[in-house]
């Protein structure tokens, strides 16, 4: 990124296939506009998002990481989001404890019917990340 370009937070968004990715599809079908900062990676289930993926995204230079799944009780795999919630709570706590801005990691429950909510989640995240500037605490100094 050249010095002139204003800072745009880079977000990796892990979206579960059944709810949040479908919700983001609905945002598309409804033509709801939101910032392009979040690049989606669709996974089967939020419960399949290993804490390693989150740490790795920061390590590879993400300014923010979003994990979004089905609402509690709606998981296609019944329990996946419960697992995600517990594991990623620990990740969130650890990040904060070591001095990484808590706003850099975010979780949301977005159903397939919540296109507008998905757009809002991304908008809010981008707005919260802007004042923090580039994430360089966990970022590896490599190409």
């Amino acid at each position: 990124m050249s010095a002139q370009t204003p800072y745009e937070p880079k977000i990796v968004a892990f979206l579960c296939k059944w709810c949040s990715s479908a919700g983001s599809d609905l945002a598309g079908v409804s033509r709801i506009q939101y910032p392009a900062n979040a690049t989606p990676i669709t996974v089967a289930c939020s419960g399949g998002v290993s804490p390693q993926f989150v740490l790795s995204a920061f390590h590879k230079g993400a300014d923010g990481v979003l994990v979004s799944g089905c609402h509690i009780g709606d998981c296609h795999y019944m329990e996946g989001n419960f697992h995600a919630r517990r594991k990623l709570y620990l990740v969130k706590e650890l990040l904060e404890f070591t001095g990484v801005e808590p706003d850099r990691f975010r979780m949301s429950w977005v159903s397939a019917a919540e296109g507008a909510k998905f757009a809002q989640v991304v908008r809010d995240f981008v707005e919260d990340l802007r004042p923090l500037g580039p994430q360089d605490k966990l970022k590896a100094e490599r190409p």
């Binding site: 945002a27 598309g28 506009q33 939101y34 392009a36 989606p40 757009a119």
Partner: peptide, 20 residues
């Protein structure tokens, strides 16, 4: 690769959308 619902339909800026 979903570049319609998750990209072209939700962004207006051509440069930004293309990069994504």
């Amino acid at each position: 690769a979903n570049i319609r619902e998750q990209c072209s339909w939700v962004h207006k800026d051509r440069g930004v959308a293309t990069a994504k």
